[in-house]
């Protein structure tokens, strides 16, 4: 599978989803700043190509586990985005009934086991989903998205070991966005993350995570390999976090950990810009792109109205769902 094989229809479809994620995240930044959200949000802006390029290969029966920066993964795999936004608003109509919020958006019916507030928390869960898929004799796979920060959690090595021993249908997608919370990756991470798979005999690859075509091709090969019993792959997606670790972080940080100039420089290769250039190269007209963008704008506007107008949960709901 190579990036050249991608059809212009598929590329446009993926761009539409990336654009939706960007719109939702930009809008969340606005409403967060306006004090409309109950809790913190960690935005996916700049990393959209990864979730979209990977999830394009997955069915509802394939599983994903994600991170505290998980809106993008949800939006890439599920169409239920009104209910996702309502969840971030903490409303009764939220996809988790308002119990999880931004860091726990999940739609199990679509194979989304959820965002996760623990750095590296999804790794073992996805290994378990892969184990379950394997023992039940399915061709389904599990994908875990995690950051470069999570690459320094011991559980990654435990998971690589069992995934290799058992040939688990597991795809480990590390989104190296340059920052482990407020620390530049290089200051807290030794060596190459993709290479951490090598000692276990698991293939590791470094991929341009801002080019959705490259992501699509690398993920497609890894997922096909996993489906056919070939086992796990570690994909390190090189990307850049255009927003902070968490919105409004400047209000509590005493000093900055990167320059504005650096952010602006990295914006030149941001994934939506690259995707539009690729679409133009593939002969897709500016008109077709604009039409798609307008459709997404309308849908996202409706989702935020739905969320803001949704009722708060009944207080009694706080005491439900601990046990099945």
């Amino acid at each position: 599978m190579s990036a050249q094989e991608i059809s212009s229809e598929r590329l446009l479809q993926m761009y539409g989803r990336m654009f939706r994620i960007r719109l939702v995240e930009e809008r969340l930044a606005q409403v967060q700043a306006a004090g409309e959200l109950p809790g913190p949000v960690h935005l996916y802006i700049g990393q959209e190509a990864i979730a979209v390029g990977v999830c394009a290969h997955l069915s509802d029966q394939d599983w994903i586990c994600s991170t505290h920066r998980g809106h993008g993964h949800f939006l890439a795999k599920s169409d239920e985005f009104q209910r996702m936004v309502a969840e971030v608003y903490g409303r009764a109509t939220g996809v988790c009934g308002g119990k999880g919020g931004s860091m726990h958006v999940a739609d199990v019916s679509k194979g989304i086991l959820g965002a996760n507030g623990i750095v590296g928390g999804g790794i073992a869960l996805a290994a378990g989903a892969a184990l379950s898929a394997q023992t039940r004799g399915t061709r389904n796979v599990a994908v875990v998205f995690f950051g470069d920060g999570a690459a320094n959690q011991g559980v990654l090595f435990e998971a690589l070991n069992v995934a290799a021993l058992w040939s688990l249908p597991l795809i480990l997608v590390c989104e190296n966005n340059g920052f482990s919370e407020f620390s530049p990756t290089a200051t807290v991470t030794a060596g190459e993350i993709w290479n951490r798979a090598t000692p276990f005999g698991v293939p590791g690859r470094s991929v341009d995570g801002n080019d959705v075509r490259e992501v699509w091709a690398a993920a497609g090969a890894a997922i096909e390999r996993a489906r056919s019993g070939g086992g796990a792959t570690l994909l390190e997606m090189r990307t850049y976090r255009l927003r902070g670790h968490v919105e409004a972080e400047k209000s509590f940080l005493s000093k900055s950990y990167r320059s504005d100039a650096e952010v602006e420089e990295r914006r030149e290769r941001e994934p939506l810009r690259l995707a539009v250039a690729a679409l133009h190269g593939a002969g897709v007209t500016a008109d077709a792109i604009a039409k798609l963008e307008e459709k997404e704008r309308v849908a996202v506007q409706a989702a935020f109205e739905y969320a803001a107008e949704s009722p708060w949960p009944e207080p009694g709901a706080a005491f439900e769902h601990m046990f099945a």
Partner: peptide, 28 residues
């Protein structure tokens, strides 16, 4: 050996794998 898996001494991944497998259709 498919249903009964001897694991490495890796409690972090084991205890979490149990959750992932249970959430996706196995009883662990």
């Amino acid at each position: 050996a498919s249903r009964v898996r001897n694991t490495p001494i890796s409690e972090s991944v084991m205890s979490g794998m149990a959750v992932g497998a249970a959430a996706t259709g196995s009883r662990v």
